[in-house]
Design a protein around this nucleic acid. Structure first.
Length: 215
DNA sequence: TTCCTGCACT
DNA sequence: AGTGCGGGAA
């Protein structure tokens, strides 16, 4: 079986087993961008607390957030961890949004994917995973998101080597799958859900895993 | 105590 | 390649 076919089998198996994910959790493109920064190396439940702190004060809007001083913003997002550096990263992203689209995120979607991705990666604090999360989930661009779970799952199924880097792994998917936003959206979500529940870092629980039959 | 949908800096 | 950033939940 080709690796392309196997990737689609993985997808269909996970979707049939777990059901659709309805990702990304977030009511607006901007909220999705904020969540993408806050969830860097951080449990989503902690991100949710930080988002709620902002939302309950009606601060989850670019203009309002940009006018907050860094100290207050950091305090509000404290539950998400790395709060000082993440406050700075949010401000960096806000400055990008101001310059690029005057805070009107849908305007970004007219830009070419590769060009927009390069620009996002120049923002301090926006790395490849955060950039692709914003592109895919906030802007609905067909940019596949990979993460620690993705490489772990594919490595344990002998599809890629252990130390594959981010862009190699992203290309692995994008070279083998149709460039489809809905497919990329759901595939990444399913891999994260699988990683959290079964494909743990130190103690994988292959019994009961939807992909167990592929081992 | 470990781990969490990373990234920048040295 | 190694390290700092960090609170919260299991």
């Amino acid at each position: 079986m080709s690796s392309s076919t196997l990737l689609m089998h993985f997808y269909e198996t996970l979707l049939a087993s777990l059901g659709p994910s309805q990702w990304w959790p977030g009511e607006t493109p901007f909220e999705i961008c904020v969540g993408a920064v806050l969830t860097q190396n951080t449990n989503w439940s902690n991100v949710q607390k930080a988002i709620n702190n902002l939302k309950s004060r009606d601060l989850l809007h670019p203009e309002k957030m940009a006018s907050l001083d860094d100290e207050l913003l950091a305090e509000l997002i404290r539950p998400s961890g790395y709060f000082r550096i993440k406050a700075r990263r949010l401000k960096n992203l806000l400055e990008f949004l101001r310059l690029e689209c005057a805070y009107h995120l849908p305007d970004l979607s007219s830009q070419d994917l590769q060009q927009l991705r390069d620009k996002l990666l120049q923002v301090k604090g926006i790395g490849p995973e955060t950039a692709d999360s914003i592109l895919l989930y906030a802007l609905e661009k067909p940019s596949f998101v990979v993460d620690a779970y993705t490489s772990r799952i594919l490595n344990r199924h002998l599809l890629v080597h252990e130390d594959i880097d981010y862009h190699e792994l992203r290309d692995f998917f994008m070279d083998r799958l149709p460039r489809d936003v809905a497919l990329y959206n759901e595939y990444h979500a399913l891999l994260v859900r699988t990683g959290k529940k079964w494909c743990n870092k130190n103690n994988p629980r292959c019994d009961g895993c939807p992909l167990g039959s592929y081992l």
